[in-house]
Design a protein around this nucleic acid. Structure first.
Lengths: 123, 123
DNA sequence: ATACAATGTAGAGTAAACTCTATGTCAAGG
DNA sequence: CCTTGACATAGAGTTTACTCTACATTGTAT
């Protein structure tokens, strides 16, 4: 299947402007039809989903750019890409642990508030 | 104990400029000495630590501002502050779950890469 | 043929959260 | 006394990631 930028925008939940911006930043390079309109494929869809995953886990555009560049060079860059993912995985793991620590402290604070409020309403 | 902005900057790992910016945004309001220099206390230190926690868990400055405003009004705002924290807790929980989902997918991708590389080097 | 909606490009504008610069004050050491 | 270093304010500049505007083309329905 092929999609116009409007269709692709709906499929990905990314604005048309954002899609053009991503192309400008070389994250994605859809084909063009005879009248120069962008033609996105299902492969592009899978790729955008992956980009979104990287973004949602805190990878900056610059780094995704680097990954996309390696990807466009194909097989010879497989191991380098894997290293990027492994290092990102590590960062993500640390991020999750930190957040869980924060969650714990937040829970303590909430409990503290609960006691405070109880002791005040009891007056 | 009281601290100058320089000392406080080292204690908190926040730049002097950042501390002044936070003050400008009403996140923190240290006292001043006779010559108008900022005097941070241990209470300010605990408060900044909490601000950092909120920030690290994705709360925007505007919302921390709101929390700080309630905090400055004291006891009557306790329950409203607690509600903010509870709602933030919920968002944080969702964030962590999402990240764990992303982590899973990332692991799958890494495994895929490993297989690819193995099958190529075996040639 | 014509209107209009979707698309194209180039470049300007925005929002968040800092970060830095210019300029001035002040207390303490040489 | 004078310089120096930390601090003060006001406001400009930076970075990231969009988001929007202006204007030109093109495909489709009337």
């Amino acid at each position: 299947m092929e999609y116009s930028i409007g269709e692709f925008s709906k499929l990905t939940n990314l604005g048309i402007h954002t899609l053009r911006y991503y192309e400008h930043e070389h994250l994605i390079t859809p084909g063009r039809n005879s009248s120069n309109r962008r033609c996105y494929t299902d492969k592009d869809l899978a790729w955008i989903d992956f980009i979104k995953r990287l973004k949602n886990t805190g990878m900056p555009i610059k780094e995704i750019q680097r990954y996309a560049e390696l990807r466009s060079k194909g097989e010879p860059t497989l191991s380098e890409r894997m290293e990027m993912l492994i290092s990102h995985r590590k960062a993500l793991n640390e991020q999750i642990n930190q957040l869980q620590e924060h969650m714990k402290k937040l829970d303590e604070k909430i409990e503290f508030y609960q006691r405070e409020i109880e002791s005040i309403t009891r007056e």
